[in-house]
Amino acid sequence: MRFLIQIAAVALLAMAAGSALAHNCPNEMKAIDAKLATHPALTADNAAKVKQLRAEGEAQHKAGKHDDSMKSLAQAKKILGI
């Protein structure tokens, strides 16, 4: 019986961790916004690309496509150097 409780607890924690990661998009967007607020030295093309990727990430997040959102936001963060 104790073993089943431990397995259930581990399964519950694993699901909670997955859910938390899937909804980390807002934190990623906040990090991008904070960096953009510092007016980083970017080329016009890179600045436009970051803004485009950030907007795509937000739209994907709102559509429930969290994996796609995280990919878009990760690309924007890479350009920004964060």
Rank of each mutant, 00 (worst) to 15 (best):
K35Y: 03
L4A: 15
F3P: 03
H39N: 15
A8G: 01
K49M: 12
D45F: 05
P26Y: 03
I5S: 13
G81W: 00
E28K: 10
K65A: 14
K65M: 06
A76L: 03
N46I: 00
D33C: 00
L42V: 08
A55H: 10
H23I: 10
H23N: 14
K65Q: 15
K49V: 09
A20Q: 07
S72N: 14
A55W: 02
E56D: 15
D33R: 05
A41F: 03
E56P: 06
G57Q: 03
R54C: 06
K35M: 08
N24D: 12
D33F: 00
A48W: 03
L80K: 05
H23W: 14
D67Y: 14
N27T: 03
S19F: 11
V10E: 00
A55T: 14
K49Q: 15
G81C: 01
C25K: 07
A14V: 06
S19H: 09
K78H: 10
E56K: 12
G64R: 07
L21Y: 13
D45A: 15
G18S: 05
I32F: 05
P40E: 01
E56F: 08
D33S: 10
R54M: 09
K35P: 06
I7M: 03
S69E: 03
N27K: 10
K51Y: 08
G64P: 00
K49T: 15
K51V: 10
M15W: 11
A22Q: 13
A63E: 09
E58P: 04
L42C: 08
V50I: 04
K71S: 15
L80C: 08
G81Y: 00
G81F: 01
Q75S: 15
A47N: 11
A22P: 09
L21A: 12
